[in-house]
Amino acid sequence: MQNWPVTNARRFEVYVRWSLYVLLLAVPLQYAAMLVGGSAGGAQGRTLVHLVTLVGLALILTAFNVLAARWSFDRVMQGPAPVPRKFVVCWAISCLALAAGTVALLIPETAIFLWYLVGCVIGAASPLISARRTVIISLVLTVVALALALAVTPGALVGLAFSLIVIWTAWSMGWMLRVLRELQRAHEVETQLGLAEERLRISRDLHDVFGRTLATISVKSELAAELSRRGLHERAADEMAQIRQIANTAGAEVRRVVRGERQAGWSDEIEGARALLASAGIRCVVAGEDVPEKYAETLAWVIREGVTNVLRHSRATQVSITTAVEPDEVALTLTNDGARGTGAAGESTGTGLVAMADRLRGVGGRIEHQQDGDWFVLTASMPLPQEVPA
């Protein structure tokens, strides 16, 4: 399925291109049939040299038409591309030469073929022409054909029909390739957005996972160093063993984050926060109601970020986590008693809380914080959908 859009787009483009090429290749075949029919009728002044020359001119013009159609398709799919002036001049000369030679034969099918010739020449460039201009060209050709049909020969109307079929068929092929190009661009943008979203998810999850993990390692490393300086080597060794265990767990968390298997659960996050704070010597009190499952994951990330900030920016000895489910919103309050002058600012302006605030704003929630003496209070709230009375 991964190769489906690109593979089929290329096949479709090749199909459209060659459909128009084959349509333009019908010119020399019809011209040869017309000459053979006219020869059988015994038109005057026609020799084998005349016939071969005119068929050769038809083949040359067809080659120019195919090249022009290819250039038109390339511009549709790849953008503006210069066309040599010599090519345009030679294309025009071959067209005029074939038209003049056909008129000189004075056979009944001349009017039909000339109009078909005009249709093929215009059709080669039709993929680049807008629908409005194509309509104008069609109206002009119709008016001219009607005038010729009334003044010269009714065959002009038959030739006009062939001409319009070729022109609009070529235009529709160009339109299909333009649609294909837009679909390809949309597919590329979708792919780029998917990659950007996945990178954002991984970076956000890694920040959430390792923010707390690194804070834990930092706290325990300081504790182990202090114990070692005091000569309590066994306790220091225990702390270092715990640090190694945390590092091993972090490696497993990285693999789960990269694979997209990690989901923040409410109960797991509460227990993890309690264990982490306990390992740092901080008492944790949890109270309140159960959070609705729909909002548990977002608020679990708030707990993770809040606990990480407590370890990084405070000297807390006690942390409380309280939840409240009101009729119109669910709220989470996280407080600690170790706020510092610089800690409060650092906690409020850290990139983690900014990211949490952005995430909550995305679902209509908000984050508020305040400092009351040594206590720092972080409140996150999310609105609950209101039931519409029947």
Results as ranks from 00 to 15, higher is better:
Gln2Ile: 08
Ala9His: 11
Glu13Tyr: 05
Val22Trp: 15
Leu23Glu: 08
Leu24Pro: 08
Leu24Thr: 11
Leu29Tyr: 10
Leu35Glu: 01
Gly45Val: 01
Thr53Asn: 13
Leu54Tyr: 03
Leu54Ser: 08
Leu61Met: 07
Ala63Cys: 14
Trp71Leu: 03
Phe73Leu: 14
Met77Pro: 00
Arg85Thr: 12
Arg85Leu: 14
Lys86Cys: 09
Val89Asn: 03
Ala99Tyr: 03
Ala100Val: 02
Leu105Tyr: 04
Pro108Glu: 08
Tyr116Ala: 10
Leu117Trp: 08
Pro127Ala: 12
Ala131Pro: 13
Arg133Asp: 13
Val135Trp: 10
Ile136Asn: 02
Leu141Val: 11
Val144Trp: 06
Leu150Phe: 09
Ala151Gly: 13
Pro154Ala: 14
Ala161Gly: 04
Leu164Gly: 09
Thr169Glu: 05
Trp171Tyr: 04
Gln184Lys: 11
Val189Pro: 15
Gln192His: 06
Glu197Asn: 04
Glu198Trp: 10
Asp205Met: 14
Phe210Ser: 02
Leu214Ile: 00
Ser221Asn: 07
Ala224Glu: 01
Ala225Met: 14
Arg229Phe: 12
Leu232Tyr: 10
Leu232Glu: 09
Ala237Leu: 04
Glu239Tyr: 03
Met240Pro: 00
Met240Val: 06
Arg244Gly: 12
Ala252Leu: 05
Ala264Pro: 00
Ala264Thr: 11
Gly265Ala: 15
Trp266Glu: 13
Ser267Asp: 15
Ala275Arg: 00
Ala275Glu: 11
Leu276Gln: 15
Ala278Lys: 06
Gly281Leu: 07
Ile282Pro: 04
Val286Glu: 07
Asp290Gln: 11
Val291Lys: 00
Val302Asn: 06
Gly306Arg: 05
Asn309Ile: 01
Val310His: 00
Ser314Cys: 03
Gln318Tyr: 14
Thr323Asp: 12
Val325Pro: 05
Pro327Phe: 08
Leu332Arg: 02
Leu334His: 01
Ala345Phe: 10
Val354Leu: 13
Phe376Leu: 04
Leu384Ile: 03
Gln386Trp: 03
